[in-house]
Computed example of a mutant assay.
Amino acid sequence: MICRSRARRRAGGAVFLLLAVAGCSNGGSALGTVEYTTPAGQVVKIQSPPDDGCHRLAGGARSVRNYTVDDLRLYADANCVLTKAGDDQSGRTGGESFYLGTQMSVPFTPGQTPWRSYSVVGGGA
């Protein structure tokens, strides 16, 4: 009986591990929602964006809320290209992009240039 009990526990553990790994697979997307407000005041929601490449923010974004499981990097350039130091979206010197952690938000700062694109940090292969 002891051997069967161990075998069942091991088999059960293996099944649990497989289910846990399958549950972590998100199909190449940042699970959750990215929500932003355009300069015109329109709220845009992007559900589970792909985790690779550069993504444009249609109309630009004044404020961004990251309700995904991944961090984001916001760019003032539409092609996820870093701006020159001192010419960043917040008007502060030394910044080239903005790092937005998971479950965080960044409000509008007077004088800022709208963010035009974003990428998922560590996303894609």
Rank of each mutant, 00 (worst) to 15 (best):
D52W: 05
G12K: 04
A14H: 02
S5I: 15
G60V: 08
A78E: 08
P114A: 06
R8F: 14
V121I: 11
G91A: 09
E35R: 15
G28Y: 02
A78D: 07
C24I: 12
K45Y: 03
D88L: 05
W115V: 07
V121W: 10
D70V: 08
Q103R: 15
G53C: 05
V44K: 02
G32H: 02
P39V: 09
Y99Q: 05
I2C: 09
R8Y: 13
Y67F: 12
A20I: 06
G122Q: 08
P110F: 15
R73V: 13
C80Q: 02
V21F: 12
F16I: 04
T33D: 14
V15N: 00
V69D: 14
Q42V: 08
A85R: 13
L57K: 01
G41Q: 01
P39K: 03
G124A: 07
E35G: 03
R8V: 12
V69P: 03
V34G: 04
A22L: 11
S25V: 12
A14C: 07
P39S: 03
G23E: 04
A85V: 07
L82H: 11
D87H: 11
K84E: 12
Y118D: 01
A61Q: 05
A78K: 05
A30F: 03
A58L: 09
A76M: 03
D51I: 08
P50M: 07
G95C: 12
A85H: 13
T37A: 09
R6D: 00
C3S: 13
D51H: 13
R6K: 10
A14W: 05
D70A: 13
L82Q: 09
L18F: 06
S5W: 13
A11R: 11
G32R: 02
T93I: 06
C24A: 15
V44L: 04
N66A: 05
G53A: 06
P39C: 05
N66C: 06
Y36E: 01
M104S: 09
S63D: 08
G13H: 01
R56Q: 06
V43G: 03
S117M: 03
I46F: 02
V120E: 00
S63L: 13
A30D: 00
G12A: 09
Q47T: 10
D51E: 12
P50Q: 04
A11Y: 05
C3T: 12
N66V: 13
L74V: 10
L19I: 02
G41T: 00
A76E: 06
A11T: 10
V15R: 09
C54Q: 04
G123R: 05
F16T: 06
V21Y: 07
Q103I: 12
T93P: 15
R8N: 04
P50H: 04
V34R: 01
G111S: 11
G28L: 11
V106M: 14
G86T: 04
M1P: 00
Y99A: 07
C54F: 13
F16R: 06
T83K: 08
S63I: 13
I2L: 13
P50D: 03
S48D: 12
Y99H: 10
L17N: 01
D87S: 08
T33P: 01
L31K: 14
M104L: 12
D70S: 14
C54K: 03
G53F: 10
A20W: 11
L100M: 09
S5G: 05
G12P: 00
